Simulated assay, not measured.
Amino acid sequence: MSVELNHTIVHVKDRWAAAREVGEVLGLPEARAYGPFAELKLDNGASLDFMDTEGEIHGQHYAFLVGEEEFDLVLGRLQEDGRGWWADPFKRQPQEINHGDGGRGLYWEGPDGHWLEIITRPYGSGGS
């Protein structure tokens, strides 16, 4: 058996609002209830399990590999919503796209300080 990521828990103030926000930007089906989680299924079978958390939340980084068409759709949703995005995780290149490994990528701020990223080519896959 190979090793694959199955799920990860995303700590947020409001699990349903956060799952809805991320799902809408990524174009995913609505989250479903799974125990104490709002489970957002990704196309590869892995899931983001959003969980209500009291107290301080430490933002995490979540990167999603998407196709070229999906990239354009996500970018369009960010633009329609008037949301900012950056080519880099340090917010030095606002409203720009990076071209790492010969693909395209961008970052945006998700719910509760989580930093979200889409890329069309995996890191280290080649290209300029």
Score class of each variant (00 low, 15 high):
W85Q: 02
R104V: 09
F64I: 01
G82K: 05
D72A: 11
W108C: 01
Q60D: 05
E80W: 04
Q93R: 14
G103N: 03
K91Y: 07
D88N: 14
Q93Y: 13
V66W: 00
H61I: 08
G100Q: 12
G67M: 04
L75S: 03
D101I: 02
P89G: 13
V66P: 00
G102L: 08
L75N: 02
V66H: 01
P89M: 07
V66C: 02
L65I: 08
W108Y: 13
L106S: 02
A87V: 06
W108S: 08
W108A: 03
W86S: 02
E56D: 12
E96D: 05
P89Q: 07
H58C: 06
Q93A: 09
G76Y: 11
K91T: 08
E80F: 05
W86T: 00
L65V: 06
G82P: 03
R83I: 04
N98K: 11
V74Q: 02
I97W: 13
G67F: 10
D101A: 14
V74H: 01
L73S: 09
W86L: 04
G102I: 08
E70F: 03
P89F: 10
G105C: 07
D81C: 04
L75A: 04
G82W: 11
G67D: 14
H61E: 13
G76K: 12
E109F: 08
H58N: 10
G59M: 06
H99T: 14
P94A: 13
D101F: 12
G102M: 10
G55N: 10
R77N: 09
Y62D: 05
V66K: 00
P89D: 09
E56S: 12
L73T: 05
G76N: 13
E56I: 06
L73Y: 02
V66Q: 03
D81S: 10
F64G: 03
F71I: 04
Y107C: 02
D101Y: 12
F64L: 06
Q60P: 01
